[in-house]
């Protein structure tokens, strides 16, 4: 199947921060959650996907096309939602639509009206009077009204109340009924992902730690608890990171099967949530 997004050996260096040799391929028809701590490189990666930033080296292709020759074709097919409001805050939604709509060949006014009604958005109030949730809905309404094949969102759920977060996730699920659609969104609220993500890409300190299906993650990652005397230099190899406490150890593994073989019933194995994984991998993780 075609890769909708294809990052090959992409690097970008800033003062005090760099993204190094990221390889990331997104397949058509799936939702990928992009997780990582604040400052891990999520926004930078998204900006490079949108050609707002150019990588120092490496290759970026969307829909199999490069930005150098096909910038417009690519962006016609993307719907974007950013963390902050990028629309002119003094304008109302009607005027914003008049500016953004004609930019797209496939802009669908009827669809836009449907979303505006669905989200109960006022058309005649300036954007700056909108709450954070309403701004997000407005961005979303605009992003969804030109039949985009790829929807890229940077922290769409940040700052939203729990109810609207769920509504948003339901809506994304609904959008995915169209199997041609691909969604890529960054978040640090990992509980959002359990419900809708097919794949998880995890970035840390500018490094893509893993990109796996959520099923793989659930199957292979686990939190293991047991007595300290079970640990030695050999058995510890099964773990990505071990935390020792006076009462025993807790460790993260990405290989539940091996752990079961090695320790049998002497340890407790719990499912690792994405948050657990992020927490355990924080700092200098020792990855094999």
């Amino acid at each position: 199947m075609e890769n909708i997004v294809d990052l090959k050996n992409v690097s970008k260096t800033f003062k005090g921060f760099s993204i190094e040799n990221i390889n990331l391929q997104l397949k058509q028809g799936f939702v990928t959650g992009f997780i990582g701590a604040n400052g891990a490189g999520k926004s930078t990666t998204i900006k490079m996907m949108m050609n707002l930033l150019k990588p120092d080296s490496g290759e970026i292709k969307l829909f199999g096309l490069n930005y150098k020759e096909h910038e417009k074709e690519i962006k016609e097919r993307i719907g974007f939602v950013y963390d902050g409001n990028v629309f002119f805050e003094g304008l109302n939604l009607k005027d914003i639509k008049r500016i953004v709509g004609p930019a797209y060949k496939q802009w669908d006014d009827t669809l836009f009206k449907q979303y505006v009604e669905k989200f109960e958005l006022p058309l005649n109030k300036p954007m700056k009077t909108f709450s954070k949730g309403m701004q997000m809905k407005a961005s979303l309404a605009i992003a969804l009204s030109h039949h985009a094949e790829l929807i890229i969102m940077d922290e769409p759920t940040a700052g939203l109340d729990p109810i609207f977060r769920r509504e948003l996730l339901d809506l994304l699920q609904e959008l995915m009924m169209d199997s041609n659609r691909t969604i890529f969104f960054s978040t640090h609220i990992t509980s959002d992902l359990d419900r809708i993500a097919d794949y998880i890409a995890f970035i840390q300190h500018g490094d893509l730690v893993f990109h796996k299906s959520i099923h793989d993650v659930a199957e292979n990652y686990a939190i293991v608890k047991g007595a300290i005397d079970l640990l030695d230099s050999d058995t510890e190899k099964a773990f990505i990171r071990v935390r020792r406490t006076p009462t025993g150890f807790q460790a993260l593994t990405d290989n539940t099967a091996t752990v079961k073989d090695t320790f049998g019933d002497t340890v407790v194995i719990d499912r690792a949530s994405l948050e657990d994984i992020m927490y355990y991998m924080k700092g200098d993780y020792q990855h094999v």
Binding site: L52, E71, K72, K75, Y82, V86, F87, F88, A103, Y104
Partner: peptide, 18 residues
């Protein structure tokens, strides 16, 4: 006075314009 804002440039450059 609008165009000097970073958000405006992010918006315009995310739309299908070169």
């Amino acid at each position: 006075s609008y165009d000097e804002k970073a958000e405006t440039n992010i918006l315009l450059n995310s739309l299908p314009y070169t």
